[in-house]
Design a protein around this nucleic acid. Structure first.
Lengths: 191, 191
DNA sequence: GAAACGTTTGAACGATCGTTCAGAAATAAA
DNA sequence: TTTATTTCTGAACGATCGTTCAAACGTTTC
């Protein structure tokens, strides 16, 4: 075995992240994993199975980090740091600026049903993480108790999408930085 | 000629809008235009040329409507209407909820350079339209003179992306509606 | 060492991709 | 009507797509 299953998933995730589900060819993946088609199909069934494995790891990573934010001393500061870090990714890793879930979602109509369902679930998981952070911030008086948690989570998810999408075209770091500031300022203001 | 050039561009735009640049096959397009490959290639050169023609029409449409907003009695109300209308598109036309420019941008790394450049230009044109609306609102005292126009335009573009992207998955009309409300509320608040 | 089992290999399949081009058809000029 | 010019047709090209499978290989068990 040239590579563990976890390594393979990680490498495949990179390819899907760079090229999207439709754009990533099995031959790109074969090269990245340094494996021949048969091995990959034996391990993951097909392209969809491999993508689902990668999406699972990706989403779990986000969910874990959001839960970590909710346990931090200052949940909102931790969240701000979490959201801001990928925006200024080094030049070679610009593909990481866009969220893998949102990127895949762009090809919605061409995706197999299994992937559509998993994307919905992934978005729900991220939203649950945001809810946890909001509730933690409320508990620490960093957010008003009156703030509607569900709505705020949906809104945060939208802001998250806006930032990550713009970061792929705008390479003006300061624009993104004050958009992030305004986002947290608007979060705390009246609803 | 079974179809005028303008009609062909319009029909091609629909296909690209539904399937994306990479996902739209020339055979899908041939079917939609009811034309054989040779005709299309004679008229537009190649797939890229056809897409560029469609993008041009699409972008000009947005720019025109934004300029119209800036000439309206209440520029911000007009803008809100313009941004809100596509979010609740009928079920058969959900593809119209996502912005064609943003959708194509998702495939960034796989796009020919000519399309990348045109996308940048298109985003710039939309931003210019937003600037015109902001300035008109300022002139009518609907926005504070102190509001930084350039920053606000970039921010508005981000909010625009967020709304349109979320509208493709969230089919809860009320969520989108109050996100739109909050957006305009945050626009008027302090920066 | 032999047999049994699970993995990996890599050539090959049919389908589809964007694109071409010789010839048919339609239109304009004479 | 004949000629010249433009437009359209559709079979076909090479490349690439996701996927398969018989054979080779590696490891374990007796």
């Amino acid at each position: 075995m040239s590579n563990s299953r976890e390594q393979s998933i990680q490498q495949a995730m990179t390819v899907f992240w760079q090229k999207g589900y439709v754009g990533a060819g099995m031959r790109d993946i074969q090269t990245a994993l340094d494996k021949r088609p048969g091995s990959i199909y034996a391990a993951f069934g097909n392209k969809e199975g491999l993508y689902l494995a990668a999406l699972e790891v990706y989403t779990q990573g986000i969910a874990d980090r959001l839960i970590a934010c909710s346990h931090a001393a200052e949940p909102l500061d931790a969240l701000k740091e979490f959201l801001g870090t990928p925006l200024l990714q080094n030049d070679e890793d610009t593909y990481m600026r866009q969220c893998l879930i949102v990127k895949t979602q762009a090809d919605w109509l061409e995706l197999p049903e299994g992937i559509q369902n998993s994307l919905r679930k992934a978005l729900g998981n991220v939203r649950d993480g945001l809810i946890a952070v909001i509730e933690a911030a409320k508990a620490k008086q960093a957010l008003a108790e009156s703030l509607p948690t569900e709505q705020a989570a949906t809104w945060l998810q939208g802001q998250f999408i806006a930032l990550r999408t713009m970061a792929t075209t705008v390479d003006d770091a300061s624009s993104l930085s004050w958009m992030l500031d305004k986002m947290f300022s608007d979060l705390k203001k009246q609803w």
